[in-house]
Design a protein around this nucleic acid. Structure first.
Lengths: 343, 343
DNA sequence: CTGAAAGCGCTTACAG
DNA sequence: CTGAAAGCGCTTACAG
């Protein structure tokens, strides 16, 4: 058959380069991939031809011939969630100067997520990073048999070592201790979704911190949110509607902390004079709220970087190994001494 | 030669399907692509074989054979900037249910950006979306001869129609009129980078709004920022250090508005009681600042969606056409009547 | 060190 | 409607 109609002008191929350099395509390939020694003069001729023609290897053909794509699939329910947005920066950073590149696919809900996964698999990604999400543990377990995978912001039953977690409990405990140190005794907690492992761990840390200080855990002060601003706002409104007394709020992430702060603002309560707030994540925006937010920092960029590197190491034959990530309490201005009247 | 060693278990190919269905690979291809009528029984047999084997076409091979990648390249200086993050959502949305998929590459600075572009070109993307960035107009103009391209957040000399802009002037004018209506006469403006077309247009709109109301433009009230929070904060500190009087701030984007608000907060000035603030963008977070931010909404998601669709239409042979995007002033609680003592 | 050949997994003009 | 064949642009074992 004849070459199919191409939308773009015919691009330079390895044969054009070979012809111009007076060598075979094999030799061009060898020079470009530095895979086999090539005589100095031919080497130079190839390089010259490449430059003259502006040759750029067709990666699709390379991937097909090599049987490996060198793509790392990144599956996310959406890249615009701040924490993931930072994590993705880390992924890009970790991939820079490696021979791999990221292929992103996102989809919310089981059906879209499955489609997104299909895209990645059709592209024969060499490894997979799963950010949160809606895929079943089962499917993920099966996938893990075919390629290195790693999850962030979710757990995979039976594949615990493949899930990257920050030290959530410790971070939450520290947040609570900070608040207790300021004299707060009635500390509300807005959790993430009850099924979310990070949300659970943070809640446990919160309760542990309270108990360690001999403060009774009041279940009514614990409201479930969904990691977004709106849910933080609703949570506080719920607490207020129930006439529950509290002088501080520990939110399961920064976004809920923003929402919580707004709910307080609407009620005429000031942060931190009336109520203190602590978040979790330390998103870039947290340093610029009015006042800036005290929060538990998660090294999102570093985590993305480490995720990629763990996967690359495995692809190179090394054992899979995931570092653990410490959190750090960043004290800013949204927390202060308990107000006497709210004690 | 023998098949190269593969990292993954050999995957099912079109030949396996053909064999199982008792037809030729050509027929399998035709069924799957719905390109040529196929007898009903064979059709069914193919589908059954596909299902039984869990066959998933190798997209790399498809793209190579077709001579088209069906990938839309998206070049950005980083996906974590809020506005672009939203725009990317729009891009993903616009691509959903099309036969195309997005390929993201990011890099800050000319060298990284060039590398990122190389990645996209090596993958033979069918079209290109350029978000802001550091590439030279020249290179972009050359690219445009080979494939449909479109820029957001930057202009390309000689390719004006290929740049997507919101109605910046009108949006800025509206912001200023809103402030004037509240009695503000001394309105500071924090612009984006002086070379940025959107920044320039917004500043023009600001000045126009002032002049239309017969208010003199005071150049000292205009400070250049760089579209990030920090620069908004610094801008306000600069104004205060110069003892310039102002009762309202119109920031060139939301991020600078957050920074500006923080600077005011640090000085003990309240928003909006002492100083009103208006942003530009209406990022998701803007609705949750304390108080929520009055801002000029840019339909970022819609813009991403439209960008993709304009490109797809061109790929399908239609004329390239870019809609224009209106802004919308979203009045929230960061603006209020001018304080008598700051009039 | 080097070229010719086979192969990667598809698609599609060609010839029934 | 359908198969055999050629081709997409590479890589790499093979045989010098």
């Amino acid at each position: 058959m004849r070459r199919p109609k191409r939308s773009q002008q015919p691009s330079v191929t390895i044969r054009d380069v070979a012809q111009r350099a007076g060598v075979s395509p094999s030799t061009v390939s060898r020079v470009l991939n530095d895979s086999t020694p090539v005589a100095a003069d031919k080497h130079a001729a190839v390089l010259a031809a490449v430059r003259a023609l502006g040759y750029r290897p067709n990666v699709l053909a390379q991937e097909l011939a090599r049987g490996r794509s060198r793509a790392i699939g990144v599956l996310a329910p959406g890249l615009s969630i701040p924490f993931w947005s930072q994590l993705v920066r880390g992924v890009e950073q970790g991939l820079r100067d490696s021979e791999y590149y990221p292929l992103f696919a996102s989809g919310e809900g089981i059906s879209e997520a499955t489609q997104a996964l299909d895209l990645l698999l059709s592209h024969r990604v060499d490894a997979l990073i799963v950010l949160g999400g809606d895929l079943a543990d089962d499917d993920l377990r099966r996938l893990a048999e075919r390629m290195p995978i790693l999850a962030v912001g979710r757990s995979i039953a039976g594949l615990e070592a493949r899930s990257m977690h920050v030290e959530n409990r410790e971070g939450a405990r520290e947040a609570v201790r900070h608040l207790l140190g300021l004299g707060h005794m009635r500390i509300a907690h807005i959790t993430g979704m009850a099924w979310h492992p990070d949300a659970v761990a943070r809640r446990e840390g919160y309760e542990q911190g309270l108990r360690e200080a001999g403060v009774a855990v009041d279940a009514r002060l614990n409201v479930e949110g969904s990691f977004d601003e709106r849910s933080g706002l609703v949570a506080i409104e719920t607490l207020i509607a129930r006439s529950l007394r509290f002088s501080a709020v520990f939110a399961g992430n920064d976004q809920m902390a923003y929402g919580a702060g707004l709910a307080l603002f609407r009620r005429g309560l000031r942060v931190p004079d009336d109520v203190s707030i602590v978040g979790f994540d330390d998103q870039p925006a947290a340093a610029y709220t009015w006042p800036p937010l005290t929060t538990v920092r998660q090294p999102a960029v570093k985590m993305g970087d480490a995720a990629v590197k763990a996967l690359l190491n495995q692809l190179r034959g090394a054992a899979f190994q995931l570092p653990s990530f410490a959190t750090e309490l960043v004290v800013r201005e949204s927390t202060g001494p308990v107000a006497p009247e709210r004690r």
